[in-house]
Write a protein that binds this DNA or RNA. Structure first.
Lengths: 137, 137, 137, 137
DNA sequence: GTGGTCTAGACCACA
DNA sequence: GTGGTCTAGACCACG
């Protein structure tokens, strides 16, 4: 379980971490119930302050992605997403629109764009199912 | 040409403006060569500081989306995107991945997700062609 | 003798315990000389760590509320309060001021506030005298 | 407008500040609409970090006591207390109980306690009405 | 050992 | 000039 942070990226380090954990959850690298790395060891490994990681975890907990048991650790939740169907769709549409606008700005046409989307869906799904196989052993 | 800003959104006002102009460009509401609203009238209409608008325009100019002709105004550029094919694709993949991860997190399945993407592509394309018709008149 | 702890309360468990013991002493549910519950049984009943209870007792002992006889247990002291008259009054005024400020903030008027104070005094006194009756049997 | 902080008090500095501001509001030294001291000047005066004051203000804003206008400053709100009658009474009872328990522990009897409460009510009311007179001039 | 809080310094967004 | 954010270090609460 190795995460990477880029100090030059402009994006806050704690958000980089939170995104990587979300990606790990989506790709099955992290599965519900799994423990996340403890603050201190991970901070040492990434050479950042413990609080920066704590902030990333706090962000994820506020969004219901993980749960933290003080004195025990942080664990990936069995994510049921308490939001309504409508609210979830609104969140998702925002993300989709950003990708669509970026595609237009970069002059990527509809065909190419849909192909890229399908490719990324395949990518995440294959990693998730591979992780599922791995867990069965 | 009406923009809207939300002071409660947490997102900086100048970025809200820049995003809306990018969206307007993607949907054809603004076309290459079009003039953007002048600082003073727009600032008055939106009840924000002229500096905030100037900052949004500066942001867009730095990204090559618009160009500023001192004493004339700001105009939407014929967007060539100086980035290489590879760099453009990398940027776009990041956006697509965020949408895919969000879909996973919200438990939106592949079918539904692709349908939403197609819907948004249609939406932007229809607005762009409608704007094109309008421009012919 | 049943105490209750709330893990969601934000307040440290050991302080919740200590406060409840102080309340029990004020209301007469615990009387000078009474033994407090032993560590192990209480820890089991409340499903918390023995150290947490030990810490609550240590806190109370440091304040002179109870005394620990190694190998015997913990007992409620005949509370003499070693503080000077002046120091005691200062402590009490701080508590009173906080209640008064809160009343102002919540727009509770003088009449209502004094009525509430009298009500709470009655409540604690009635519990204390009832406990006194019980002890005589 | 001078506040004082005590680094030896055990109580977090930002809470000391928040309490003092609440007291100032209850005693009329600060009135609805009044501006609170700006972060930087006050931090310099009290020799503490700007963030510590910001945290005190954030606490008060979360409780609806003040409102902060970024770029403008922080202002005492016209406190209407959105809580229900029942919720307010519960908050207030907690404060009152703490004072009553402290009185018992310090062996202050009912008469003396009620006298002290009345004295503090008088004190705050006299300061508030004096401040009201001052404002009329 | 675990996570949480308080304080701080540097930098950013905004008017 | 205003307040806000990000990162950090030291210390605390808890098991």
């Amino acid at each position: 379980m190795i995460f990477q942070v880029d100090f030059q990226a402009g994006k806050p380090v704690y958000l980089q971490l939170a995104d990587q954990i979300r990606h790990a959850a989506a790709s099955g690298r992290l599965r519900p119930g799994d423990a996340l790395p403890s603050l201190r060891p991970l901070a040492e490994e990434l050479r950042i302050n413990r609080n920066t990681i704590a902030k990333a975890y706090a962000e994820l907990e506020a969004q219901g992605v993980i749960e933290t048991l003080p004195g025990k650790g942080c664990f990936l939740k069995d994510n049921h997403s308490a939001l309504t169907q409508q609210a979830r769709q609104r969140l998702l549409l925002t993300e989709i629109d950003e990708a669509v606008v970026m595609a237009h700005q970069l002059r990527v046409d509809r065909e190419k764009f849909l192909a890229l989307v399908a490719e990324r869906l395949d990518y995440f799904e294959s990693k998730a199912s591979a992780a599922g196989e791995g867990a069965k052993k």
